[in-house]
Design a protein around this nucleic acid. Structure first.
Lengths: 152, 152
DNA sequence: ATTAACCCTATCTGTACAGTAGGAATTAGG
DNA sequence: CCTAATTCCTACTGTACAGATAGGGTTAAT
């Protein structure tokens, strides 16, 4: 069971934006370099994030991206769903088993759909428990620890 | 984010076994017909379930499969992990970003790995909250309701 | 006008998954 | 012992999709 790489890229991208305190927008090229994401692929991710209303962009020669809302109002679930599409547990193809030879296959599939639904809800809830602001705080904690280590 | 069809097939298979009250083993062909699963594909699923110790088989002309433990000791998480392998959120490829041009890409990936770990735990926990016995009970409840409807 | 950025559509490519094929090993019954 | 039915195992195939790339259009600052 995999979340695709897009989710990871998406989180890295918005985290990069959140950590860029300056008032000027952040260029895709910079994000790509810092986070190790292929630039052309990152552009797709950023487009999805923008369409979801999570980030804003300005075009032209000093253009770039910034968060569209405060970091504590951006939940990881929003980010992941923006770049990966709605979280589904089974591919749509799952209903292709509605018809097979005997005419009434998969008798208990509705029960299993309920289970998948539970799983999906718990994934979304787990992702939504953490906001971008939380992640920023963790980054700062980590760097603080690193500095302490360095001073010993 | 998808669970593959194997998980669904696996659950249908063990549920079929759990609902077969008889003392004689259940043949793969029967499961395949009742649940609408291609026989040859189902064989792979059953093999995985057997290797995980969830079901037992007897070979030969009146062979078949039965549960290796009582239904209330088989959790859906066990079944899913048996047929799909350990639940992973990101493909192993995720560490390929340890080296890119500047030499130190993906600075916050450990934080994100923590998030994925949380998600994974919540998926496993959600699946493990339901046992095969629970599913059987739900099937019976559904059939009871269906019978009532029929009598009106 | 030039340039640097974002924006969009299309295409390539590898891989994982669902499904298929063929046959070896095992057991029951005649 | 022979046959039939079943599990067991290995290998192969086709396809859909994700990651990645390519190329060019659009916008705006200088």
């Amino acid at each position: 069971m995999y979340l695709s790489a897009r989710g990871e890229y998406g989180i890295m991208a918005v985290l990069d934006l959140a950590l860029a305190k300056g008032s000027s927008p952040v260029q895709a090229k910079g994000i790509a370099d810092r986070q190790g994401i292929p630039l052309k692929f990152l552009e797709h991710i950023l487009r999805a994030l923008r369409h979801a209303g999570l980030i804003e962009s300005s075009r032209g020669i000093h253009g770039g991206y910034r968060l569209a809302k405060p970091a504590d109002q951006i939940r990881l679930g929003d980010v992941v769903q923006a770049v990966e599409g709605p979280i589904a547990i089974t591919p749509p193809r799952s209903s292709l088993r509605a018809h097979n030879g005997n005419g009434h296959g998969a008798p208990h599939s509705s029960l299993i759909q309920d289970v998948w639904e539970e799983v999906k809800v718990s994934v979304v809830n787990t992702l939504n428990r953490t906001t971008l602001a939380d992640l920023c705080r963790r980054v700062q904690d980590l760097e603080e620890q690193r500095t302490l280590m360095y001073h010993i």
